[in-house]
Amino acid sequence: MTQTPGPVGMSREQMSARAALDIADGSYVNLGIGIPEMIAQFIPEGIEVILHTENGLLGMGPSPADGDGDPELINAGKRQVTALPGASYFHHADSFAMIRGGHLDLCVLGALEVAANGDLANWSTGGDSIPAVGGAMDLVSGVKAVYVMTSHCTRDGIPKLVETCSYPLTGVGVVNRIYTDLAVVEVGPDGFEVVDLTEGVTFDEVAALTASPIQDARSARVER
């Protein structure tokens, strides 16, 4: 497919750094496998964030140095990690009690589509793929705040912020905020609201690449 040149958005690293700025000191956070994991590298100095991985660790640290890993100390993506001072291990019922009982402050997940009412589709493209959900449905239904980090459009230029999801849902009305390469978008009572734009990107460009009405709420934010 030919692509028309669009606005130049942030890299994944820049998106991660932008999202990291909004995580409050002292938060308990679950970062989804893939791009959201990268946020951990950009937590600002002086801010303490405790990372939860649903397979049974609170206080997750970075990957071990080569040769120092333990195949039984892994994250939800099954990659070897480390445990920071103050960490704890627990079984799955406790781990998902943290999630389902509303004890985690924030989770950040990837998305195939987000709808204007906060519906999220991120676990299945339908068709012939092997269905696999993991903990995504538990996270979106139980964690206090649900953020999504995703490119604004697919590689083919198709908007991911839509009126109604076409892929199977992960949760209904669950997403609070979306970090894309082009903007930060809140899911408000009347649908999508841009609260921040990537430098060099205009509101009209974002609106043109969003498949649902979207408001410019940046001034409201400044006045606050």
Binding site: E54, G134, M137
Partner: peptide, 14 residues
């Protein structure tokens, strides 16, 4: 295949 959300799977077993 019976596909079950991970937390629901854990809680069903518990």
């Amino acid at each position: 295949l019976e596909l079950v959300p991970q937390g629901t799977l854990a809680e069903r077993i518990r």
